[in-house]
């Protein structure tokens, strides 16, 4: 896969991975290239976050570092932000403060 097909801020950690990892933040409103496809980023993404490389169906294993990091819990398209809203652990559920934060009006 030619590197120019994909935004250089997206890192592929292992050849079979289903996600890229952001080496830098991406601002809301940017359009980035993911394997030649233009993807609009609607909300700002911090470094270390993940973007889908492949289309995934609910129940599919999500691979990073060449190993499963959980299963898709919703349909995922290439270029989608992959996080707790569409990826769930196969072990114990992930606890976040999203609801509390929304109630308090704080931005993450």
């Amino acid at each position: 896969m030619p590197r120019s097909d994909t935004d250089p801020r997206l890192m592929l950690l292992s050849p079979g991975d289903s996600v890229y990892v952001l080496r830098d933040q991406i601002a809301a409103g940017e359009t980035i290239l993911v394997q030649g496809r233009k993807v609009a980023i609607s909300a700002a993404l911090g470094l270390g976050h993940k973007i889908a490389r492949a289309a995934l169906r609910p129940g599919d294993k999500v691979l990073k570092y060449g190993a499963p990091i959980g299963s898709a819990s919703a349909p995922i398209a290439p270029g989608d932000h992959v996080h707790t809203h569409n990826l769930k652990s196969d072990y114990t559920a992930t606890h976040t403060l999203e609801a509390a934060r929304a109630n308090a009006g704080e931005k993450s």
């Binding site: 990892v21 959980g70 114990t92």
Partner: peptide, 8 residues
């Protein structure tokens, strides 16, 4: 918040 989604 830092981009990790699951324990694994």
């Amino acid at each position: 918040d830092g981009g990790l989604s699951t324990i694994e």
